[in-house]
């Protein structure tokens, strides 16, 4: 029997960072307060003491400069991991991410690959209001040239980073802020995981619940509740938001004939719209009911707890949506 390790999502990310720093001397971590402070969510706590200030680099509040510097260092043989505190602040570096990281390889006719990894938190649920709570990973998933990952489990928090570092192109990793304290067990010999395929986190034959990141746990809770009502939901964790693993999604929908997409992003012009469209494009005749989406209300995330709760997808919303699609059609 394999030994197991009690850990948290936060510790799993930290272990992944440690492993990368130990295994590859080209790897370094930089971002605001990653060193002395230990990371704004305490992810990199202790790494400065272990690896020193050259490899655990505290940066000034200069998102555009240090993300861009990460791009340049990646172009020049290093394997930087850049941490941005929160996706809302990544907008100050959006120019570098889109106009340089995602674009240089193509624009240079294949001469300039950018093997950069950027990690950042995303998502709502902690009453941090509109400038700290948005889920903009869907925007980034719009951009050709980027790979977008959303680790929702301890295993992925631990295993995606190393695989991302092997990618010759830029990878953005979105860690939902509500996940850091999630505790659980991992095999002691846990390590790198694949990043190409979505995962079926719960099998079921009545409806496909398609989600990722911070809403995976809610979808699983909803599936548990629905099971009590005699509805077996299959829960798919997308894991990679770009490229999307259509095959896993379509295969599931072909079996369940019904789909609900759950996304903490806004609905209009969104990732959930993209997933829905792909199902319609590839499995239209397999559907027995219109697809439903459970998304965040079209509003900047408000501070007040009751308003924030009402704004973002909740278990009850998912359960209701499933009842609608199961009740509908043939």
């Amino acid at each position: 029997m394999n030994a197991v390790l009690k850990t948290t999502y936060r510790e799993a990310v930290r272990a992944a960072l440690r492993e990368a720093l130990l295994r590859d001397e080209r790897v370094f971590l930089m971002g605001e307060d990653v060193g002395r402070y230990g990371g704004c969510f305490a992810v990199s706590l202790g790494l400065l003491e272990e690896f020193g200030p050259e490899r655990i680099r505290d940066t000034p509040l200069s998102e555009s400069a240090f993300v861009g510097a990460g791009i340049g260092a990646a172009m020049n043989g290093m394997r930087p991991i850049v941490e941005i505190m929160t996706v809302n602040f990544s907008l100050l570096a959006l120019d570098q991410i889109l106009n340089n990281a995602a674009t240089l390889l193509h624009m240079s006719g294949g001469q300039v690959p950018v093997p950069l990894v950027v990690r950042m938190t995303t998502g709502a649920g902690r009453q941090l209001a509109a400038q700290h709570s948005h889920s903009l990973e869907g925007w980034y998933a719009h951009i050709p040239g980027l790979r977008i990952l959303a680790p929702a489990t301890l295993e992925d928090a631990r295993g995606m980073l190393w695989t991302a570092l092997q990618d010759p192109d830029p990878v953005l990793i979105f860690e939902h802020g509500s996940l850091y304290n999630v505790a659980g067990e991992l095999p002691a010999d846990t390590g790198a995981v694949g990043i190409d395929r979505a995962a079926v986190r719960r099998a079921g034959g009545d409806v496909s619940l398609i989600t990722y990141g911070g809403t995976l746990a809610k979808a699983l809770d909803a599936a548990g509740e629905l099971s009590g009502d005699g509805i077996e939901a299959e829960v798919i964790d997308l894991r990679s938001l770009r490229p999307l693993d259509d095959a896993t999604v379509i295969d599931s929908v072909r079996r369940t004939h019904r789909a609900v997409v759950v996304d903490e992003g806004w609905r209009s012009g969104s990732l959930s719209a993209e997933i829905t469209t792909r199902i319609v494009e590839q499995a239209f005749y397999d559907l027995d009911a219109p697809i439903e989406r459970v998304c965040t209300a079209e509003v900047p995330i408000p501070y007040a707890r009751h308003l924030e709760e009402a704004a973002i997808p909740q278990v009850a919303d998912i359960v209701d949506a499933v009842h609608r699609v199961v009740g509908a059609g043939g």
């Binding site: 941090l128 209001a129 400038q131 408000p302 501070y303 007040a304």
Partner: peptide
């Protein structure tokens, strides 16, 4: 003052 939308920071 911000109708509960902003909180301490806004």
């Amino acid at each position: 003052c911000s109708r509960g939308r902003g909180g301490s920071m806004h």
